[in-house]
Amino acid sequence: MSESLKPVTAIKAPVHLEFSYTAGRASTRFLRGMAQGKILGQRCPECGKVYVPPRGSCTICAVPTDVEVEVTGKGTVTTFCIVRIPSDSLSIDPPFTCAHILLDGADLPFFALIQECPFDEVRMGMRVEAVWVPKEELGPTFESIKYFRPIDEPDASFESYKEHL
């Protein structure tokens, strides 16, 4: 049937792992907060650090973190990376920038996409805010925050976030 076809030189060999993920008590609180457009964390009763997203315990003090804290969507870029390699699994085209963002009042940065800003202008100390999906699309998922964008505030000093790199 196929004498004229070219020899096979490559095959698709995807690795596909399907997990059933149960969020647990702390992450469930956080995700239910996302569905309401709120960012919820937890404060350690011993060292006072605020974990966003919360994990239910402080890994330094080894105690449960049962004090809930709401933080705003404003924060500071502590560090970042520029993605230049395209992939089928990415929903946007490179180049784009992802950053570690330390929300005001939080002690643990998390990873998020930066948009509404040229990819190569993202910098350490840059002030950003969360951009949420429309209210009717909010859900118990991180994807309720579309991305972060720059705000018109002076950069945060290195001193203010150097403990969080």
Partner: peptide, 16 residues
């Protein structure tokens, strides 16, 4: 508690 399916996939193409 919330629970969801989480899929991790590496779409490899491999030369043979």
């Amino acid at each position: 508690r919330l629970s969801a399916t989480h899929v991790l996939e590496y779409p490899y193409r491999r030369s043979v």
